[in-house]
Amino acid sequence: MSAVAWTAVGSLAAWGWLLLGQGFFWRTDQRLPPSEAPAQWPDVAVVVPARDEAEVLPVSLPSLLAQDYPGRAEIILVDDGSTDGTGEVARALREQLGGLPLRVVPPGEPEPGWTGKLWALRHGIALARAGKPEFLLLTDADIAHEPDSLRALVAAARTNGLALVSQMARLRVASGWERLVVPAFVYFFSQLYPFRRVNRPQARTAAAAGGCVLLRAEAAERAGVPESIRQAVIDDVSLARAVKRSGGRIWLGLAERVDSVRPYPRLADLWRMISRSAYAQLRHSPALLAGTVLGLALVYLAPPVALFAGVLEQDAAAGWAGGLAWAVMTGTYAPMLRYYGQPLWLAPLLPFTALLYLLMTVDSAVQHYRGRGAAWKGRTYARPEAAPDR
């Protein structure tokens, strides 16, 4: 067989393993586990790190203020050096709408060795602990919750004995680029961290979605977070690892009533969002970067190339192997598109989207070696740790 045919066969074999051996990552059925209302609802502190979020707070914060929670709950919004009036907007919304108690507090500038979000969380968690809540809800400033979201999270944690419950918020999909890139973002994340494996106590795989994390305060203390992960850029995965390693049960699934309201209308917006932390996920390793590029090329780019080359060169083996690999790829992507309510004709375009992610990852490495590191909201972390071990 030709070299193209052998490459296509290798890609097809990889897809066979991904289909059956990677925790059925492509399924979208991991939703909040069944739960019962507790006899007495525990206290909860909602911690919201916010830096220059005045634009999205009018959409997201009212959903937290309006939580229909039977127990005692308060919101601590940590205004992390905002220059756009984030704190003032938050206070005005609370005064106008009422709802849960709200405190807006400044954390000060991060100390050396801390990334900005974790520094803000540290400050918010420290204030929350003074009230001795049983649970902490760590949620981003761009996340909107349905009125029963907090109640459902707490009930799931209490019923199932979970130390951490995290939902992957449904990201906004409105523009053409969002339709092309966003569902694939969640698809690739679940491929790296299959939710079924995350949710098995005996499995080593651990991950969380940072936009919505319910965490037992006792589990946070036992795991030493956020101090133990203070350098992490991929803070949600690092948090889940720390909790699981300390003996806590964790759960991760797709959200039905938790949504991100942040828009990414242009490719440049999505590019910055993904590339800022892609190389940190690879632990700033040139070897892992090279392996990732080769892996993406073999798994996602080789099938369509082999199919078209097989047709043009009358190479039946290359054409059949490439076509079958592309078909399996398309089939595994379809459930995520259905979850996002997108047309299935987008599924065969996944190789093009994968090419974009490949280029974003390479750009992330280039920015790192230029000394720009993981840049976000005016801060740059030149050499942060992806997920430091304890």
Rank of each mutant, 00 (worst) to 15 (best):
residue 313 E to P: 00
residue 169 A to N: 12
residue 70 P to Y: 11
residue 247 G to W: 09
residue 312 L to I: 14
residue 76 I to G: 05
residue 244 K to N: 08
residue 368 H to D: 10
residue 128 A to C: 13
residue 358 L to P: 03
residue 248 G to T: 04
residue 252 L to Q: 12
residue 284 H to I: 00
residue 281 Q to I: 14
residue 55 E to R: 12
residue 340 Y to L: 10
residue 296 L to S: 11
residue 36 E to R: 13
residue 66 A to Q: 13
residue 227 E to A: 14
residue 137 L to G: 05
residue 387 A to S: 14
residue 246 S to Y: 03
residue 289 L to K: 01
residue 255 A to L: 04
residue 211 G to V: 06
residue 89 V to T: 14
residue 145 H to Q: 08
residue 74 E to R: 15
residue 360 M to T: 05
residue 350 L to F: 14
residue 376 W to M: 09
residue 119 W to F: 09
residue 204 R to T: 12
residue 368 H to A: 12
residue 192 L to H: 10
residue 389 D to P: 07
residue 320 W to K: 07
residue 125 I to K: 07
residue 55 E to A: 13
residue 386 A to D: 13
residue 146 E to A: 15
residue 50 A to M: 02
residue 81 G to R: 04
residue 105 V to C: 03
residue 197 R to V: 09
residue 71 G to W: 09
residue 73 A to G: 09
residue 308 F to N: 00
residue 75 I to P: 01
residue 301 L to N: 03
residue 336 M to Q: 03
residue 354 A to I: 03
residue 274 I to T: 06
residue 256 E to F: 00
residue 354 A to P: 11
residue 127 L to E: 15
residue 231 Q to A: 00
residue 365 A to F: 03
residue 71 G to N: 05
residue 200 R to G: 05
residue 18 L to T: 00
residue 105 V to T: 13
residue 282 L to Q: 01
residue 139 T to I: 12
residue 76 I to Y: 12
residue 54 A to K: 01
residue 184 A to E: 06
residue 130 A to H: 08
residue 225 V to I: 13
residue 90 A to Y: 03
residue 142 D to T: 09
residue 201 P to W: 12
residue 211 G to L: 05
residue 326 W to N: 06
residue 101 P to Y: 06
residue 165 V to S: 02
residue 318 A to T: 10
residue 297 A to K: 02
residue 289 L to Q: 01
residue 96 Q to K: 15
residue 335 P to M: 13
residue 29 D to C: 08
residue 367 Q to S: 07
residue 121 L to T: 07
residue 66 A to W: 00
residue 104 V to F: 08
residue 113 G to F: 02
residue 140 D to N: 11
residue 145 H to N: 04
residue 233 V to M: 15
residue 269 D to S: 03
residue 21 G to T: 05
residue 144 A to N: 10
residue 292 T to G: 04
residue 34 P to W: 09
residue 120 A to F: 03
residue 5 A to I: 12
residue 68 D to W: 00
residue 104 V to T: 13
residue 62 P to T: 12
residue 48 V to A: 05
residue 190 S to E: 07
residue 184 A to Y: 12
residue 182 V to C: 00
residue 335 P to C: 11
residue 84 D to S: 07
residue 80 D to R: 01
residue 167 Q to Y: 02
residue 326 W to T: 08
residue 386 A to P: 07
residue 74 E to S: 15
residue 57 L to F: 06
residue 359 L to S: 01
residue 340 Y to N: 10
residue 188 F to L: 15
residue 203 A to I: 01
residue 54 A to L: 08
residue 342 Q to N: 08
residue 328 V to R: 06
residue 194 P to C: 04
residue 56 V to R: 11
residue 376 W to S: 10
residue 372 R to E: 14
residue 96 Q to D: 14
residue 157 A to Y: 10
residue 110 P to W: 02
residue 223 A to K: 02
residue 145 H to E: 01
residue 106 P to Q: 08
residue 208 A to W: 02
residue 174 A to C: 00
residue 22 Q to V: 13
